[in-house]
Each structure stands twice: as structure tokens, then as C-alpha cells.
């Protein structure tokens, strides 16, 4: 895996309901350096629309969002 997608921190948010995924991700992003990647695993179907909305509002980049069954995985780059 190249440096550009190296994961600095991973959050297991499976089973958590709204608003916890977005609350925990907003905290977690502060624990990685600017430019680094935060990985987050969720199962809340709402997070598929919520996390990108959070990214657009806060400016952090959603590098990837993928779904496998009920498991959802986000890669988020801290931009500021």
C-alpha cells in the first residue's frame, strides 16, 4: 500500500446508531495528523449519507466509501 492511503488510525463503530458515528469520527479525525488517513467501520446505513455530508461541511476528504453487506468502511483524509 502506498503512503497516500496508509491508515494512521482505525475506528470500529459497528453497531452504533446516529449520531454516534459522526460524533466519533469528528473526534477521531483530530487524532491523526493533517494529510493522514482515518479508517472507520460502521453498520448504520445512514452513515452512507451522513459521513459524506460531514466531509463536505468540515472539508475533510472522504477518500473511499465501500459497502460489504451491512458493513460500511470509510477512508477519510484529514485536510486541516
Amino acid at each position: 500500500m502506498s503512503d497516500a492511503t496508509k491508515i494512521s488510525k482505525s475506528l470500529d463503530l459497528k453497531g452504533l446508531a446516529c449520531p454516534m458515528p459522526v460524533v466519533k469520527i469528528s473526534k477521531g479525525i483530530k487524532e491523526v495528523a493533517v494529510g493522514e488517513i482515518l479508517e472507520a467501520h460502521t453498520t448504520d446505513p445512514g452513515s452512507l449519507t451522513d459521513i459524506p455530508a460531514w466531509g463536505r461541511t468540515t472539508g475533510h476528504e472522504i477518500v473511499d466509501a465501500s459497502q460489504d453487506g451491512e458493513n460500511i468502511r470509510f477512508l477519510i483524509r484529514r485536510t486541516s
Binding site: C18, P19, V22, V23, I25, S26, W54, T57, T58
Partner: peptide, 11 residues
Amino acid sequence: LVIATGAVAMG
């Protein structure tokens, strides 16, 4: 409370 905590997450 969901909106309030979510809003903090949104900055």
C-alpha cells in the same frame, strides 16, 4: 440532543 451533538461534530 441528536441534532445538538451532531452539530458539534459538524464543527
